[in-house]
Amino acid sequence: MARHGRIAAGAALLLAAAAAFVLPDWIISLATIAFANGLVVLGLIVLWRAGLVSFGQALYYCIGAYAVALVGRATGVTDAFLLMLIGGAAAGLVAFVVGFLLARYREIFFAMLSLALSMILYGVLVKAESLGSTDGFSVASPTFFGYAPHQEKLLMALYWLVLAVCAIAAFLIDAYFRSVSGALAMPVRDNEIRVEFLGMSVSRLIHTKLVISGLLAGMGGALAAFAIGHVDPNMSYWTTSGEFVFITILSGAGSVVSAFVGSLAFESLRSFAFAMLPQLWQMLLGSVLLLTILFLPQGLGSLVTRLRWRRKAAAP
């Protein structure tokens, strides 16, 4: 089945890449931002499988974005690959450092502490007048190994870059979930003491997950900065983190692909709600989340599992 899964994922990837030729620009742009956010959600899924909910993932997202914008502004580097790696590395490094503290906390304490850390960054950025405070500042158009596209071509190049990064991330995280360290996520959630008695260090396991999720969120932030062309401190605000948690609940932790499907569904839903109910769009989003929790407690990803189970039950 795993092989089937990979073939299906590869086919979906090719389909998504080819869609850039057919779909209008606004959908490509929406999907670019949705998939960049999907990386952050993937990081949250890594944590969630170990029973941890981070309400401060915007910290790494914002660091990734600001790293891209600041390095670009200070050095004039515009290469998307280089900047993206810098953004991811910067966020991963911060995650590694704060991980020493965060890895010791669980449940609500973990959530609140991660929230507090992201709000510290928000506070610092808002006070930084030279960085435009809450207004933020713009990010130069990226280039791709010297290739400097514009308008529609830039949009497509970015979309494919985001797709490629998402595919690599999905593949690696899928492999991680199958590894011993990744597979120990649920035992950690269920009974930490038992895992310790197996000879594994729980805090090191969680620390690893924090760095992975930080890295993913940083890459997501870096790609989002390219796609939006602007960074501002709101990227680190708690509502941004809350939105990522929202998408994670919508997606479910069942598979790596659900992060991207959930993210795309969320962006489309919000866009639809904005157009339909300009003053009441939050109500529509809230109702969808509520219905998801009530009827699909395992998220959109669980739809498939349910279908398969029912089919098996119906077979003679």
């Binding site: 899928d174 795309l264 498939v304």
Partner: peptide, 19 residues
């Protein structure tokens, strides 16, 4: 629901909803 089977194939097929 975290079994290998659903890991990648998972939400792919629920893309009808997305569409």
């Amino acid at each position: 629901m975290f079994n290998r089977e659903s890991s990648l194939a998972g939400a792919l097929k629920s893309s009808w909803l997305l569409a």
